[in-house]
Computed example of a mutant assay.
Amino acid sequence: MKAKVAIAGWLGLLGVGLGMGNAACAAGPYPDKPVRIVVPYPAGGSTDILTRLLAKGLTARWGQSVVVDNRGGASGIIGTEVVARAEPDGYTLLMNGSGPHTVNVSLFEKLPYNPVKDFVPIVRGMTIPLLMVAPANAPYSDVKSFIAWAKANGGTANYCSIGPGSPSHLAGELFKSMAGLPQLTHVPYKGSGPAIVDTIAGTCNVMFDAALSSGPQVKNDKLKLLAIGTEQRDPSWPSTPTVSESGLPGFSAYTWSALFAPAGTPAAIVKKIQQDAVAVLQSATVKAALADQGAQAGGGTSEELAKFVDAEIAKWGKVVKDGHVTVN
């Protein structure tokens, strides 16, 4: 069942805890015991790294342990459900990614959680740009020349992804639609590594891939960087235009992680977590550590995150539907 979301729904959830806030404060200042942040991915990935940086900073600010609990599996569904069913007291949080929180609702017929009704948004954690890359010797060097080449080579032109339903796949489908390239063939791979190898070799004509994995190959001149998927230019690639400013205005595709709490968490607690998390995320140490991972530190308010998530669900839902995207 496809979810229909509304900003009002998010804001209503934020207000659920207003009546509970005073009671929570009366019981003692939050937090007065360890806090758990669930990551619905295995340890070692970019979201895990972000969460451990945030946990370390919050532990220092709060004087209470903030621990990371990795619950990977089932496209992020397992860990996400854990938090959806947790006690809404601020002691179990979720650092979720774009897939489990805004794409799965369109990819899977049934989910054991509702990304709007079961969670309160707290703060955006980070953004990881998707780089539009091509073989180093490709006969095109930017978005416009690739589109022209693809139209002239419609029978063979392709784009590769790191797997069905991945951000890499959805970005390619969005590009294909906006560029008017119905003949552009999708070639899925099992992970970024093999897809990059075949892009370097020229088997793949173009692909969208996270800066963390494809960026080093660009710097080593093994891949050609055509454009950046974020709305604004990336500070790490200041001379490279975005896809949007390269002839496809409005295009945006990137991965992100954000912090959520179970629905019903007191508003006063949500506000405290949001303020302290922003302070940690915007610290020089964390910003530098995330930059090393090809990521940009997040921030913002709960309300801003709610609007962003609503927009992401609607956008990728349309891409999944129009592109007949499946995870099979």
Rank of each mutant, 00 (worst) to 15 (best):
S166I: 10
I200Q: 07
V206W: 00
G165C: 11
G202S: 07
S145Q: 12
A195F: 01
L174R: 05
S168N: 14
F146R: 03
K190P: 15
P164L: 13
L181G: 02
G172H: 01
F146K: 03
V187L: 08
T185A: 15
M178S: 09
G180Q: 10
H169W: 04
T203F: 13
P167Y: 06
H186D: 13
F175K: 03
A179C: 06
T199Q: 13
G202R: 02
G191V: 15
A195Y: 00
S145D: 11
G202P: 12
K144Y: 08
C160T: 05
P188K: 05
A148T: 14
L174E: 09
I200H: 04
C160H: 01
A201P: 14
A152Y: 00
S168Q: 11
P167I: 09
A179P: 02
G180E: 06
A157W: 05
W149G: 08
A201R: 14
L181W: 02
Y189T: 10
C160A: 07
T185P: 12
A171Q: 02
P164M: 12
A148G: 11
S192I: 12
F146E: 03
V187Y: 01
M178G: 12
L184Q: 03
G163N: 07
A157D: 10
C160D: 01
G193I: 15
K144E: 15
I200M: 12
N205L: 12
G180P: 15
V206P: 06
S166Y: 05
G163D: 04
V197T: 07
N153C: 06
T199R: 08
G180A: 11
H169F: 07
S161Y: 01
A179H: 01
P194F: 10
K151P: 00
L170D: 02
G172I: 00
T156M: 01
C204M: 04
M178N: 09
A150S: 13
A152Q: 00
D198A: 08
G172D: 03
G172P: 04
S192E: 08
M207V: 00
C204V: 08
K144R: 13
A157P: 11
S161G: 11
S192C: 10
I196Y: 01
Y189N: 02
Y159K: 10
K144V: 09
